[in-house]
Simulated scan of single mutants.
Amino acid sequence: MDSARRQIEDLVRGAVPYESGLDLLAVAPAAEIDPALFAALIDATARLWRGGWQPAELHRAVVRRGGTDRPVLGLAVVDAIAVQLRGLDRRTIDDRWLAQADELEARVWWSADERYVSELTAKRRRDRISVVDDLLGLLTELAELPSIEVLVPFLKTAAAARPGASAVDDRLLDRVRALLAKAESTTYPAEAETYTAKAQELIARHAIDEALLAGRGERTDVVPFARRIGVDHPYEGEKASLLSAVADANRCHTVWSPDLGFTTVFGFDADIDAVDLLYTSLLVQAGRAMAKAEPPGGKAGRARLKAFRQSFLVAYAVRIGERLARATELALEQATDKSFLPVLRSRDEQVRETMTRIFPRTVRGRGSRVDSREGWESGREAADQAVLS
Rank of each mutant, 00 (worst) to 15 (best):
A160V: 07
Y188E: 15
A143N: 11
A183D: 00
L172R: 01
P189I: 04
L202A: 05
T196M: 01
G215K: 07
R205T: 01
V152Q: 09
E184C: 11
Y188V: 15
A207M: 08
T157L: 09
V176K: 00
A183V: 01
A160P: 07
R216P: 06
A181D: 14
R177D: 15
G215H: 11
E144G: 15
E193N: 00
L180D: 03
A167T: 12
L142Q: 12
L138R: 12
R162A: 15
R177H: 14
A160T: 06
G217M: 04
R177K: 14
A158I: 09
S166I: 01
A214L: 02
L179V: 02
L138F: 14
A211S: 12
L179I: 03
T157W: 08
A160Y: 04
I148Q: 12
A160R: 06
A192G: 10
P163C: 09
L180Y: 04
P153S: 13
A143D: 11
L155W: 07
A199E: 02
D174P: 10
A204F: 09
A199D: 02
L139R: 09
P163L: 08
A204I: 03
P189F: 06
E144R: 15
R162D: 15
E193K: 00
R177W: 15
A159G: 13
E201W: 06
S166F: 00
P153D: 07
I148W: 12
D170L: 14
A192S: 13
G217A: 07
H206R: 09
L138S: 11
A197L: 00
